[in-house]
Design a protein around this nucleic acid. Structure first.
Length: 270
DNA sequence: ACGTGTACCTGCACGC
DNA sequence: TGCGTGCAGGTACACG
């Protein structure tokens, strides 16, 4: 489900649990990406003191010096509901202040929850090798040129690597490459400085706009209130194979790169 | 050290 | 209707 804009939308929705107490916990016996032996009961009776996001990870700090790291995988969804009536694929749930429930549902189970000591969070193996946030000043053309100069892989695969830049997934990299008129097939090394600048600007613009619109609801993404995002209405290439290019009217092509679909226009992306 | 392919899992849309 | 196939927002790892 989620790239950075969707996770950020969920994070904002979780603000309603700030300063509230976890009064009860449910955990299914199904394994998520990590084993089900992680003891999430450690946070019962503690209060939520902060809700952050790093890359596509939700980071929830608790008053007892514990932190929950949650990733939504491909199909994870968090909702806040008045009642907890367990549905298929509900894998954990927190009762909040004895009144509402935060419920995690994930059919494919590629997501996870882990609980670590708050001061050890950066040691977590999933957070260890993350590149800059796309909207931060650290993600700039000096930084990116240095990285791309050494790479022989295609630009699309490189930009989806979380050690290069975080949170840019298959939807938004396809859109960003279209916006900057760069072919996803280009070898990193061949990008000129002005193209790198264009690409960075497109990524920043598109990610920011998608956050503003509450993310993209392609199939099942919803925010914590069960509402859909709107950015999918603005998608220009993603999932548009054989349809007309909005810029030049040629047909959008679909190719597979590193096992993922890429959509692009052969006649106006170079 | 880097690049590629595969595994993890369920559900859905499609064609026969 | 039913079955087989391919595809889906991500990430880590095992190979060459």
């Amino acid at each position: 489900m989620p790239e950075l804009p969707e996770v950020e939308t969920v994070r904002r929705g979780l603000e309603v649990i700030r300063n509230k107490k976890i009064t009860e916990i449910f955990r299914s016996n199904k394994k998520l990406r990590f084993d089900s032996t992680i003891d999430i009961k450690k946070i019962v009776n503690s209060e939520v003191i902060d809700i952050k996001r790093k890359a596509r990870y939700l980071i929830i700090d608790f008053s007892n010096n514990k932190t929950a790291i949650i990733h939504l995988g491909m199909s994870g969804r968090i909702s806040i509901k008045d009642q907890f009536i367990k549905l298929k694929h509900d894998h954990f749930a927190f009762k909040i202040n004895n009144q509402e429930w935060l419920i995690y549902n994930d059919p494919r189970r590629f997501g996870f929850i882990d609980i670590v000591k708050t001061d050890k969070i950066d040691d977590h193996k999933m957070l260890a090798r993350l590149g800059p946030e796309p909207l931060s000043d650290n993600f700039n053309s000096n930084y990116l040129s240095k990285i791309l100069n050494n790479k022989t892989i295609n630009i699309k695969t490189a930009m989806m690597d979380n050690s290069v830049v975080v949170g840019v997934g298959n939807i938004y990299i396809n859109e960003s490459l279209f916006d900057s008129a760069i072919s996803p097939l280009r070898s990193c090394k061949t990008l000129k400085k002005n193209e790198i600048e264009k690409l960075i600007n497109s990524i920043k613009k598109i990610i920011a706009e998608a956050i503003k619109l509450g993310g993209s609801s392609i199939s099942d993404y919803q925010n914590t209130k069960g509402e859909f995002g709107y950015f999918q209405n603005l998608l220009k290439v993603y999932d548009r194979s054989n349809q007309d290019c909005y810029r030049c009217n040629a047909k959008i092509e679909r190719v597979i790169q590193n096992g993922r679909s890429s959509f692009y226009c052969k006649s106006c992306q170079f």
